[in-house]
């Protein structure tokens, strides 16, 4: 079975809050100083799901990432986790792509790969939180799709997933090829082993640019974007917390109840 996983490199969401930075002028989210970027968390879940499927039914896993040259870092890590092949989609023209322009390039790369049974993506990318790109890939490739799943299995040539709902989940069966987006409930991503890291070090990461992908220049990057960010800012919350004082935590607990009563909240 041929599985493609799309991964995005993002600023580490676990970095200290104070280190969060944006460029208001260029409307970009920046990587915090001194904190290395990471594979988007849900994409790690997608990689893990792909590796587990490969272990169960055999096959090959290919990771695709559209990004700066520095995003080879994420692809190296995917290789270290056990992905068979990793390809970087990079071209200066791809910069500042919105979901439409990103999905267009990823779909072109998947077409170029040609062989695939299942495409696994993350549920959303933690930098812009759009949760759009996978549906776009599916639409461009005319594939059935299901988003935000907590389980993916392959049985008798069909894909069976559990889509998360507010009050439970839904079991859905899809024919292959299809596209599924993975949520964090699905698994715990493995850590690369030393052997994996060594093997990844030796692997080449091909770079496919606009020419290699034969994409329409008007449909990539900023030029191909349909949404435009006109303002990007950091919200400020005026800290006006009233602290409950007390000698002991027990005393504070009691005082909290009294204060809430006073405010007629309980």
């Amino acid at each position: 079975m041929d599985i493609i996983v799309t991964i995005k490199q993002v600023p580490d969401p676990e970095a200290p809050k104070e280190s969060f930075r944006i460029d208001e002028e260029a409307k970009r989210i920046l990587n915090p100083a001194n904190v290395d970027p990471v594979i988007n968390g849900y994409d790690e879940n997608a990689i893990e799901a792909a590796l587990q499927l490969k272990e169960a039914v055999g096959g090959k896993v290919t990771a695709l990432c559209m990004g700066e040259e520095s995003a080879t870092r994420a692809l190296k890590q995917a290789l270290a986790m056990g992905v068979d092949e990793a390809i970087l989609l990079h071209d200066p023209a791809f910069a500042d792509a919105d979901a439409t322009a990103t999905a267009y390039v990823l779909a072109a790369a998947i077409r170029k790969l040609g062989k695939y049974d299942l495409i696994l993506c993350g549920r959303q990318a933690s930098d812009w939180d759009q949760a759009q790109v996978p549906s776009g890939i599916a639409e461009y490739l005319d594939l059935p799709s299901v988003t935000a799943v907590q389980k993916v299995e392959v049985r008798d040539g069909t894909v069976r997933v559990e889509r998360i709902l507010e009050d439970g989940y839904e079991v859905i069966e899809l024919p292959m090829p299809c596209l599924v987006t993975v949520s964090n409930e699905a698994n715990r991503p493995r850590y690369p082993t030393l052997k994996g890291i060594m093997a990844a070090g030796k692997k080449q990461i091909p770079v496919w640019n606009a020419a290699a992908l034969e994409v329409d220049p008007a449909r990539v990057g900023r030029a191909g974007s349909l949404t435009r960010v006109v303002k990007l800012y950091i919200p400020r919350f005026e800290g006006s917390c009233e602290f409950i004082e007390g000698e002991t935590p027990e005393e504070m607990g009691e005082k909290l109840a009294l204060r809430l009563r006073e405010l007629k909240i309980i």
Binding site: I22, W128, R228, V229, Y233, I234
Partner: peptide, 13 residues
């Protein structure tokens, strides 16, 4: 909200 709410973006189409 973007980046989980660490920033806000205004978008036009």
């Amino acid at each position: 909200p973007v980046s989980g709410g660490n920033a806000m973006a205004t978008v036009v189409i």
